[in-house]
Structures are given as C-alpha cells and as structure tokens.
C-alpha cells in the first residue's frame, strides 16, 4: 500500500541554519499520526513544507500519489489537505458563522450551506456564538473554530499544528474525542503535539523529530518505552 503522504529526504535551510534535514515521513491512510519532539526539532517547519508555505531546499513530497513538491499551498489544499495552524488563525473580524461559510462554500452546494453550517456549529459547540465575531471567542473556542474550518474542507489529510496548545485539560480531552470521531469517519490525521497524554489518547503512529531529523518512529507504546526518546526530551545528551 502506498502512503497517503510521503515525505522523502526533505530539507530546509534558512541562511546557514538547517531547520529540517533529510526527513522521511510517511502517513498511511486511516492513521492518526503524531509528530513529536522537543522545541526546535523542526516539526512546525516540516508542516509548513508539507502544506507548501515553505519550498523545500531538497527532497520531495508526494500526496495521494502525486508529486506536490512544487505545488502552491492552495493547490495542495484543493487536492485534499487541510491545516489548522499553530496560533489560531481565524478571520477575527468576521462572524463565526461566516468563518465556517468561507471554508464550506468550496465543496457545499448553496442550498445545503446553511444546514452544513448548523451541523458544524453544533459539532464545535459554537451554536450559541454563531453571530459573534471570531475575535471575541475564547482561545479554546478559536482553536476549535479553526479545526472546524479545516474539517469543513472535507480533507483526506487533516494537519493539526498543536491542536491543544493553550487548552484546558477538559478541552484537550474533548479535542481528542473530536479527532478520533473524525478519524473514524475516514479522515487521516497528522498532528504536531507536545502533550504526551494527548498523544497517548489519540495516536495510532508516532514519529519523533530531534534537531531537524527523524529520530524514531513507531507505535505510542514503542515510543514511550524508548529510553533515547526520553533522553532528548529531558535534555540528557544522547550517546550515539
């Protein structure tokens, strides 16, 4: 089986600094794949390379069997990727409903738009705030709204850059349940995450990055049991 997303020996340098070097990553269809690693490991840079915000210095990216290495971000999104960025980036000056509308109008027939909006608002527990400006929502609600916008595109691959950053533990648990529900509905998920409890809750596969390289890959149990992974997190120099 070919992977849904195949990142092959991808590198990115900024000036002389190598943020990501020779990274391999493959995400199989149906996975909830978590990308973990200490700060500065290159996770967010890798995400930006996958979605096309940055052009790689080397390597290739294949998505759904197509080489998208040179494709513009909007073309990758049209092909079935969708991303929730790290800091909530909703359209703050627009009402919540319009935020969803702008994302939904891509794939939704005009006569079904309103029903889809309602469905998403309910899913995100934002029905009561539909008319509020997105900028007036709490941080957690904005995170959810952006997840809502990302899933409104009905992506085959949902990219989540720190979906739980700044959320309470209750909200984090809810977010995990939402992600699992979406995955059960057929959506493949790739998430950058710091919160190991959350990773344990959702991940079916884990890739660890360290200093711009792929460090380890496996199931959650394997990764958690790997002493070298604990070392890089605790800052103990890794021998070899």
């Amino acid at each position: 089986m070919t992977a849904l997303l195949q990142v092959g020996r991808v590198s990115k340098t900024f000036g002389g600094f190598s943020a990501v070097s020779d990274v391999d990553l493959s995400v199989e269809e149906g996975e909830i794949h978590c990308l973990i690693g200490p700060n500065g490991a290159g996770k967010s840079t890798l995400f930006k390379l996958i979605v096309g915000t940055y052009a790689p210095t080397g390597g290739h990216i294949r998505f759904r069997g197509q080489d998208v290495t040179q494709a513009k971000p909007f073309a990758r999104v049209q092909l079935g990727m969708s991303i929730k960025r790290q800091a909530p980036s909703v359209f703050k000056a627009l009402p919540v409903r319009q935020n969803l509308h702008i994302a939904l109008q891509h794939h939704t027939a005009p006569d079904r738009l309103e029903r889809e909006e309602e469905r998403l608002l309910e899913l995100l527990a934002l029905s009561a705030d539909a008319a509020k400006l997105a900028g007036q929502l709490s941080h957690g609600q904005q995170q959810w709204l952006e997840i809502g916008m990302a899933i409104a595109l009905k992506p085959t691959l949902l990219l989540l850059d720190e979906p739980t950053a700044g959320l309470s533990s209750e909200e984090t648990r809810h977010t995990g349940e939402l992600i699992k529900r979406l995955n059960a509905g057929g959506m493949t998920v790739l998430a950058v995450e710091h919160d190991m409890a959350f990773v344990r809750q959702i991940a079916t596969a884990v890739t660890v990055m360290h200093l711009g390289r792929t460090f380890a890959r496996g199931s959650v149990e394997e990764i958690v049991a790997d002493p070298s992974v604990a070392e890089i997190y605790l800052g103990v120099p890794h021998a070899g």
Binding site: V51, K72, F74, S89, L94
Partner: peptide, 12 residues
C-alpha cells in the same frame, strides 16, 4: 483579513 489563511482554505 488573512491572505495566508485564505490560501490554506484552498483559494488561489
């Protein structure tokens, strides 16, 4: 409002 976000929603 946010050209980058708009592009990441699939708009050219």
């Amino acid at each position: 409002e946010d050209p980058e976000r708009a592009e990441l929603l699939g708009y050219d």
